[in-house]
Computed example of a mutant assay.
Amino acid sequence: MKLLEKYTSKHLKLENRIVMAPMTRSRADNEEHLANDLMQNYYSQRATAGLIITEGINVSKDSVGYINVPGLYSEKQTESWKNVTSAVHASGGKIFAQLWHVGRVSHPDFHKGKVPLAPSAVNPETQSYTYEGFKDTVTPQEMTLEDIKQTVKDFANAAENAMKAGFDGVEIHGANGYLFHQFFALTSNKREDNYGGSIENRGRFLFEVLDAVIEKIPVEKVGLRLSPDFDGVFGMTKDDETTEMFEYLVNKLNNYD
């Protein structure tokens, strides 16, 4: 198998097997979180990769945790991405939108003074880079059942907007200490309801989001990023159930086709 050979599957055809990884760049419009000409140029210049995965794109106002990060939750944001996807396609490339919610890895400065939402009220004890520089994180607000329900809808809405914007698919960011990962890990999930405790409960949010997303767009256009060995960053630590947790996730994911 050669890296520069074409890749063809039932649902995806790529000019080569190189995949550009998502990288947060903080170059979007800082008022309405729009994709702009700078981003259009950046991605079109890299369209010779077989597949581009964009930087993390916020699915809602509540999901923000970095400065100048683009969104896909408004009509104007959706329209702004069309120039990016069109430019990538014109250069022969394919591009997936990475859908992102940072959870507790945020700061009240991004939420008009309100604390960030997370599975549990556990401070990651790290720093968030705000418009005024690095600031210590705070203890987040434990998500209510209504918050969880709304966030599921937010991901589904963002996936639908991604299709309207011309993306070839989406990648759900379930890794690196952000919201989904916070639900998975015992260090960050102290809930005692149906979203905490057992391995099945801690994985429940992911599969509710995945089911909601594939009601809006075809399952073959949906990817998922996981990081089982992520340890020591953003307050995340491995525990006695980490391996079993991710084995459960992967085995259940195998039922989606």
Rank of each mutant, 00 (worst) to 15 (best):
R202T: 02
S60A: 03
E171L: 15
I95Q: 00
A28L: 08
L179Y: 06
F155R: 05
E247C: 10
A185K: 08
A156K: 06
N58W: 10
T8R: 03
R46V: 10
G169E: 08
E220Y: 13
R202Q: 09
V222P: 04
H181C: 11
S128L: 10
S63W: 05
Q182G: 11
H33C: 09
V138C: 02
E55Y: 11
Y7F: 14
P116A: 03
E244Q: 11
G133P: 05
K216P: 03
V88L: 11
G103K: 11
Q182F: 13
M245A: 01
D147I: 10
L14E: 00
N157A: 10
L14T: 00
A121I: 09
Y195N: 04
A97E: 00
L51I: 02
H89Q: 11
L38P: 00
I52K: 01
Y248L: 06
K76L: 13
G93T: 10
E125W: 06
Y195E: 02
M163S: 06
A162D: 03
I217M: 03
F155Y: 15
S198Y: 13
S74A: 10
N255D: 07
L249F: 14
L99F: 00
A21Y: 06
M143V: 02
M236C: 02
Y73I: 14
V102L: 08
D109P: 00
G196R: 08
P124M: 03
N255R: 11
V170D: 04
F180I: 13
F96G: 01
E125D: 09
A175Q: 01
Q77Y: 06
A121G: 10
N30K: 14
I53R: 01
E241L: 11
E79W: 05
K13P: 01
I67S: 06
S128E: 07
K6V: 00
R25I: 12
K94T: 07
A35E: 00
T24I: 10
E31V: 15
K149A: 13
N161E: 04
S128V: 15
T144G: 05
Q127K: 15
D257L: 06
F205N: 06
D109L: 15
Q98D: 05
E125V: 13
K164D: 06
G50R: 00
T24K: 03
Y43A: 01
Q77E: 12
T85R: 04
S80L: 07
S91F: 11
M245S: 03
Y178R: 09
V84R: 01
S198Q: 09
S227Q: 04
S188C: 07
Y43G: 02
N194R: 14
N254F: 12
A90I: 11
E215I: 10
H181L: 04
V213Y: 07
V19A: 08
K94C: 12
E55W: 03
A118W: 01
L3P: 02
F184H: 04
R25L: 12
K94D: 05
I18F: 15
